[in-house]
């Protein structure tokens, strides 16, 4: 990667999209990204900064920025807002206790000018766990139905098994291409 590659990924290119992946700590952002790029997901540490991966989907290159979600570093999420084409917000569906906190962070993001109007995919992750909240219930708790200023989609998924990940990315590319 290196600093120069980061600069290259920051610039706008044809047939490329910059995807920002956010969500609370332990939501599974890095695991989703690694699973999508077919990497080993057995030893994943909390992200202290960020990871960047390039995924190719339907001839379209997605430069995906996965940003650490711990509370202390959430104020720095705005470092990465510039030139974002789509937002992926990841939720740990099994963590009912923190659903409210997650919803709060999401509503803050949706009010950000620099992210205004861009498509959003919500991954309702960890659906493989028994007590996971179903996607439609999460949608209700977060009040997603009320979002008028952008296209959005909620996708039930499991980063562990890979279920639902591909469907989410296909939706994302389809809306990113329209831009």
């Amino acid at each position: 990667m290196g600093l120069l590659s980061i600069l290259k990924k920051m610039k706008k290119e044809e047939r490329e999209a910059r995807i920002l992946v956010l969500g609370l700590d332990n939501a599974g952002k890095t695991t989703i990204l690694k699973k999508l790029s077919e990497e080993d997901i057995t030893h994943i540490m909390p992200t202290q900064g960020f990871n960047i991966k390039s995924l190719v989907q339907d001839g379209f290159k997605l430069n995906v920025w996965d940003i650490g979600g711990q509370k202390a570093i959430r104020p720095y999420w705005s470092n990465y807002f510039e030139n974002t084409d789509a937002l992926v917000y990841v939720i740990d569906s099994s963590d009912r206790r923190r659903l409210e906190e997650s919803g709060h962070e999401l509503s803050e993001l949706l009010n950000e000018d620099k992210l205004g109007g861009i498509p959003m995919l919500v991954y309702a992750n960890k659906q493989d766990l028994m007590h996971a909240t179903p996607a439609d219930e999460i949608s209700e708790v977060l009040g997603l139905q009320g979002i008028q200023d952008r296209v959005w989609q909620i996708q039930a998924c499991s980063a562990k098994t890979g279920d639902g990940l591909q469907e989410g990315m296909e939706w994302l590319v389809q809306v990113a291409k329209k831009d």
Binding site: L3, Q48, G49, G68, I73
Partner: peptide, 9 residues
């Protein structure tokens, strides 16, 4: 360890 995010230069 004073920085809480990645270093640049």
């Amino acid at each position: 360890r004073a920085h809480i995010l990645p270093l640049t230069n």
